[in-house]
Simulated assay, not measured.
Amino acid sequence: MRVIIDADVCVGAGQCVLAAPEVFDQRDEDGIVVLLMENPPADLEEDTEHAALLCPALAIRTADE
């Protein structure tokens, strides 16, 4: 799995960090998403997919590699 973020549309809600803290973080200054792992391991794929679904701005996508 590959994770793709669009920081330009991120609203800083932080749902991704709550759902998958190993994969996502937020910038201190404005709360915009920061991708920690572009290719999370299999055991984090479910949490990562859940984070993408929770994103109110649809700033997170996943793709199979």
Rank of each mutant, 00 (worst) to 15 (best):
R2Q: 15
V3R: 02
I4Q: 14
I4Y: 07
I5R: 03
I5T: 14
I5E: 03
D6L: 11
D6W: 07
A7R: 01
V9A: 10
C10S: 09
V11P: 00
V11I: 14
V11A: 12
G12I: 05
A13Y: 10
A13I: 07
G14H: 01
G14R: 02
G14N: 09
G14A: 12
Q15P: 07
Q15I: 06
C16L: 13
C16Y: 06
L18M: 12
L18T: 08
L18Y: 11
L18H: 13
A19P: 04
P21T: 11
P21K: 07
P21S: 15
P21Y: 04
E22D: 15
E22C: 08
E22F: 05
E22K: 12
E22T: 07
E22G: 09
V23M: 05
D25G: 13
D25V: 10
Q26E: 15
D28M: 10
D28F: 12
D30V: 03
D30R: 02
D30C: 09
G31Y: 02
G31E: 12
G31H: 03
I32V: 15
I32Q: 02
V33D: 07
V34P: 03
L35N: 03
L35S: 06
L35H: 10
L35Y: 13
L36T: 06
L36I: 07
M37S: 10
M37Y: 04
M37Q: 15
M37D: 12
M37A: 11
E38R: 14
E38H: 13
E38P: 05
N39M: 12
P40E: 13
P41R: 04
P41D: 15
P41G: 12
P41Y: 13
A42N: 11
A42E: 15
A42S: 12
A42Y: 03
D43P: 10
D43K: 12
D43M: 13
L44G: 08
L44D: 05
L44W: 05
L44P: 02
E45L: 10
E45K: 01
E46N: 08
D47G: 05
D47L: 11
D47N: 11
T48V: 07
T48A: 05
E49C: 00
H50T: 06
H50N: 09
A51S: 14
A51F: 00
A51Y: 00
A51H: 01
A52I: 00
L53H: 05
L53Q: 10
L53W: 00
C55T: 03
C55S: 06
C55Q: 03
C55Y: 04
C55F: 06
P56R: 09
P56L: 11
P56D: 14
A57T: 04
A57Y: 03
A57L: 04
A57K: 02
L58M: 05
L58T: 07
A59E: 07
A59C: 11
A59G: 08
I60R: 00
I60L: 10
I60G: 06
R61I: 00
R61F: 00
T62P: 00
T62E: 00
T62Q: 00
T62S: 00
A63K: 04
A63N: 04
A63H: 04
D64T: 09
D64E: 14
E65A: 14
E65Y: 11
